[in-house]
Design a protein around this nucleic acid. Sequence first.
RNA 1: GGGUCGGUUGUGGAGCGGUCAAACACUGGAGACUGUAAAUCUCCCGGCUUUAUGCCUUCACAGGUUCGAAUCCUGUCCGGCCCA
Length: 309
Amino acid sequence: MKVKDTLIVVVGPTASGKSELAVKIAKKVDGEIISADSRQIYKGLDIGSGKVPGRWVNIKRGAKNKKVFLYKNIPHYLIDEASPRTQYSVAKFQKNARGTIADIFKRGKTPIICGGTGHWVDAVVFGQALPEVKPDSKLRAKLSHLTTPNLYKLLQNLDPARASEIDSQNPRRLVRALEIVMSTGKPVPKSGDKLKIYQNFDKLQIKWIGLNPGMAVLEKKIKRRLQARFKEGMLQEVETLHKNGLSWKKLESFGLEYKFCALYLQKKISKTEMELLLYTAIRQYSKRQMTWWKRNPNIKWFGDAKKAL
RNA sequence: GGGUCGGUUGUGGAGCGGUCAAACACUGGAGACUGUAAAUCUCCCGGCUUUAUGCCUUCACAGGUUCGAAUCCUGUCCGGCCCA
């Protein structure tokens, strides 16, 4: 595996074994890992998000000391990056990840993006320009009173180009598009518009590695992993997060493990229901992930991690 | 054994004489994706086909009433509850 000027990207559905594969690849190519996971980005979401059990340690980089999250002696970045009380976003991730990748190259190592959040991975790799418009809760509240067809009509008036591409039945997308247009007074950037900075990615060789053992195996792994997580104290983790000030509503919004554990801890569902509903939701999620990646023809898929090395 | 309520598409569950291949929800399948992405959204889901304001089969089973029955009646089978 030639490593110079190569960015390795490891993707796959949840429970496929991406994280361990990424570590093995890192050892082989002298790499460092950038986690692309919309839940592992938050502090305290550990067991439920499947964060690798690494540790924060001080390491020397030149003259400076730096705190790095190490797992099996491989640095992992963009883990524990934000408080779960705040809201992280693709745009932040894009910026941070690109900066981190540049830094890894500077030190002569190979960056490996590994994660299950397809939108985040693609934002980094393809560098789609994302408008610098922060969420405006007041505007969103106002717009939320409009019906979906009316939101769409409004967007058609303000930004016909975006309106022609957008999913006209998805109110969340419509509101976001309107937010951009109304705040900047300009249309939403076209799809394909690249970021102005960090354009150096164009020269990179990108090596896409997909790991997918298939649904039958995945189902077994999801079940087994779920039992392991309960044993490790996942319910306690969720309870602690709540005691430390995260509302049930917020925990539910994190989805999957956090959502169904929160519902159970509030006694809104039984233990049996929790286990069944959670399993089903994870399974559905893994399918949605695959739908995202299926359209990327550059991914080389492997059923078995050993063969991917 | 007596009474009673029920048996509808994978599941739950509407419909209670004609406009019923069968609402709706869930599961399942396919897909979308420009700062919530573990989110949000779309389509399909009895069979067939020219995928349609199309054809066929259907509402536990067997009979019956009726111009017409998933819907009413009788019996049988199965299940819940109550009384013995």
